[in-house]
């Protein structure tokens, strides 16, 4: 495309438009970093919560393990800002995927913050939207293991309704490993 005032025929214009739009749209970058970071953080928090509530002499301090999510948020924001600047193109699907997870985080945060008011029945509540976001991410990235991960979260979420609050954290930890970390590692190896 050397010249700037060359006249185009209508058909040439349409062909050009189609070709350019095809090159720009429809691809999400599929970065596994967030899946691995949050997968490990949430798995450690879940297992930590389970261990401290069940076996430690100070179960009241168990919720403190969730403080781990604060540095994870900081890392996420710094990484996200750097990543946004280093991508040649940000597709609409990248934006949809990003806002899906931000919306999901907003949806589940009250359950974490006010878990005590619902007797820490937190996992029964949060695993369902996490399943939805994981499943939809799988659709956006066209990546089957994430869709299956979403189904794992839904199954774990339903199971949690039948368990006591402490055991729910054990289920939550395993659900994260199977539904989030495992697909995250598969995503990383498939996109390398």
């Amino acid at each position: 495309m050397e010249t700037n005032d060359d006249r185009l025929s209508a058909q040439q214009s349409l062909t050009l438009i189609e070709s350019m739009i095809r090159q720009a749209k429809g691809k999400a970058s599929g970065n596994s970093f967030y899946f691995l970071l949050w997968g490990w953080v949430i798995a450690v928090c879940n297992f930590g919560m389970y261990y401290l509530m069940k076996f430690s002499p100070y179960p009241n301090y168990a919720p403190a393990v969730w403080m781990l999510t604060i540095p994870a948020w900081v890392v996420t924001m710094i990484y996200g800002a750097r990543q946004g600047r280093s991508q040649g193109i940000i597709s609409h699907l990248d934006q949809v995927n990003k806002w899906l997870w931000i919306a999901m985080a907003i949806t589940i945060t009250p359950a974490w913050l006010f878990g005590e008011k619902i007797n820490w029945m937190v996992n029964a509540i949060i695993l369902m939207p996490v399943g939805a976001a994981t499943f939809v991410s799988g659709v956006i990235l066209k990546f089957l293991p994430l869709r299956l991960g979403g189904i794992v979260f839904w199954a774990a979420g339903i199971l949690c309704y039948f368990l006591d609050p402490v055991d729910q954290y054990l289920v939550g930890g395993f659900a994260i490993i199977l539904g989030y970390l495992f697909p995250g590692y598969l995503l990383r190896s498939s996109r390398e």
Binding site: R7, A24, D94
Partner: peptide, 22 residues
């Protein structure tokens, strides 16, 4: 209605944003 400007606009229609190098 010029090849380069139309090409740029078409690329940007399909994306949220794009770098100069892209």
């Amino acid at each position: 209605h010029s090849q380069l400007r139309l090409g740029v606009m078409s690329l940007l229609m399909g994306a949220e944003s794009a770098e100069f190098t892209f």
